[in-house]
Structures are given as C-alpha cells and as structure tokens.
Amino acid sequence: MTEPKSLQDLPSEFVFDPARASKMMTRHGHGGWLGLSYHAHGEDWVELALPWRADLAGVAETGVLASGPIISMMDNATSMAVWTAAKRFTPHVTLDLRVDYMRAAVPGRTVIGRGECYKLTRTISFIRGIAYDEDPEDPVAHVIGTFMASHGTYL
C-alpha cells in the first residue's frame, strides 16, 4: 500500500505507530531538513535522533549545535509521545515549551531527543523530555510543555 503523505490523511481508528509516522514526519518540511529520524519508543515516550551537521551549528568556529534544531526535535518527539500515549493521531498545537540548557552538545555527536507524555486529559497533554548526546544521565537539555487538541479530543 502507498504511504499516506501526511498524518492528517490517516484514518482516525489507526493505532499511532511512531516508527512509521516518523518516516512521514521526517521526509518533508523542517524535520526532513534537520535530518531527524526515529530512534526508539515505549508506551508513552518516543526518541528521535538528530545527527550533527556543520550547517546546524550555532557558532561556526566551535561547531556546537544551535539550540533551534534541539527545540525542533523536542517539539516533534514530545508531540509524537502524546499520540503514542493516546494510541492515535489527534491534530494538536503546541501551547508552550520551556527548555533548560544543561550544557552544550559535543560537536560531531548525534543528539537523541526523548519526549514523554506524562498526563493526558481530554484536551490538554502534558509533556517533558530530555536531549542527550551520549548518556541520558548527563543531558544536554530538559524540556517541559503542553499541547492542546485542536480538532477533537485525546481521550
């Protein structure tokens, strides 16, 4: 069968599969340009990978990744964690996202973004996550935020 072009085309009874959805979300648009790919998932969490690239650096001389690509990855990983926890795709919008920067990512290393949905209500989902470049115990950044179902409900 042909892959649906976007998540909006998926039938609503479809159980959300982050591995499969990642292929769609990371082929086009911002995620595609960043080179995001699926890494792992569990019942309420999803990990994406952001490979290092020179043109994603915040400072040319050091090659340290800019924070923008990390925020984008965390937005996507936490968004997918919500649909994974809800077991289906529901259109939603990011209401807010806070990022705490622990340290700079090491140039050359792939950064992994783990998004987790720790609470779902009918219209709001609560998310948190970390970005790490080697050891999840020594993260590059922590994030916390909320999404709102824009058409329909999560539960």
Binding site: S6, L7, Q8, H28, G29, H30, G31, G32, W33, A66, S67, G68, P69, I71, S72, M73, M74, D75, N76, P91, T94, L97
Partner: peptide, 22 residues
Amino acid sequence: SDRIQGRPGYLHGGAMSGLMEM
C-alpha cells in the same frame, strides 16, 4: 519555505523558537 514547515501550511514551532532565540 519547506525547510521551516511543520504541519502542512504552517511554520514549525521549533523553527519559530530558533528565530526568536536569535
């Protein structure tokens, strides 16, 4: 541009955040 597009037709929140941080 397609480079900063999130869901079809909309700016990606992360790209928006990147611009604002800058």
